[in-house]
Design a protein around this nucleic acid. Structure first.
Lengths: 145, 145
DNA sequence: GCTTGACCTCAAGTTGACTTGAATTCGTAG
DNA sequence: CTACGAATTCAAGTCAACTTGAGGTCAAGC
């Protein structure tokens, strides 16, 4: 079964057809052809959609994701950029881990006020030490619409 | 130095004053008072802002964050909910780790086409196996605006 | 060969999270 | 006491990422 129509892809990816059309419109994915009007997709589309979904949950914008993987799904960034992204992710993973620990902690800690609890404060202190220069750089590449 | 005015908080948190006002407007934070018109904040606000920033980077909406921590910064969810959130985070951390590994891999792998590379495909396969029931449950708690 | 249902297009609407701008109000330095 | 600069309010604007709706099209089953 090499070819999937939009309903199949929607079903398997969990994304509504409108979103798939939208992603195609902004050049994030490509359809393999049409059956009548109906869009048909190759199986690699499912992988691309996984990448996109992962990227989104990583906090990347669709624009940034489009920058990481061309519409053919091939990563097309220079090595350095990819590694920079990976480092960003490392930081984010650290933060999430912290947040998770904080949540688990407050779920178990019997202290009446968590802001008083030394463990909790320690958890927070780490992330509080974030400087102000770290806003995500706005990339303004010519929107390909 | 117990009390900070909005400029200090902006400086230390890295958030613009407009955002701080906005957060206050939607009930996410509270100001401790005014000096003339100027908002003054207690030091705990900085911690709350860290939590908010972490939560955002974890992909939570401001509404959800408001649900996790009351405007006093005290977590006020039942234990079970907190643990559920923590589990969500675990999954997300797994995904991000995967994505990071994928990025690092393609930065190093010499294969001409990554979609052919077995290592890359294996990395993707894991997340592709996501079913469709997993949309984040829309919580419709009465927006407190 | 006609109906039907799922898909199509295109424009417009929505939501969340802010930002911007005009007109106004203070506290402080001179 | 006046001027200045920074903060204030409130309405409106912006941006990304979709969704919705009206009106049209097709291929497959009957």
């Amino acid at each position: 079964m090499k070819i999937l129509d939009i309903a199949d892809v929607a079903e398997r990816s969990g994304l509504p057809p409108s979103t798939l059309r939208y992603y195609e419109e902004i050049g994030l994915i490509d359809s393999a052809g049409r059956h009548g009007l109906r869009r048909q997709y190759g199986p690699e589309t499912l992988l691309q959609l996984s990448l996109i979904t992962m990227g989104k949950s990583a906090g990347f914008s669709l624009d940034e994701i489009a920058g990481m993987f061309g519409s053919d799904g091939q990563p097309d960034l220079p090595r350095d950029d990819l590694l920079t992204r990976a480092d960003q992710l490392d930081r984010q993973i650290r933060d999430l881990t912290l947040l998770r620990n904080a949540l688990r902690h407050v779920a178990e800690c019997p202290a009446p006020s968590h802001m008083e609890c030394p463990t909790f404060k320690r958890l927070l202190k780490v992330t509080t030490a974030r400087k102000k220069g770290d806003q995500r750089a706005r990339k303004k590449h010519p929107s390909k619409r």
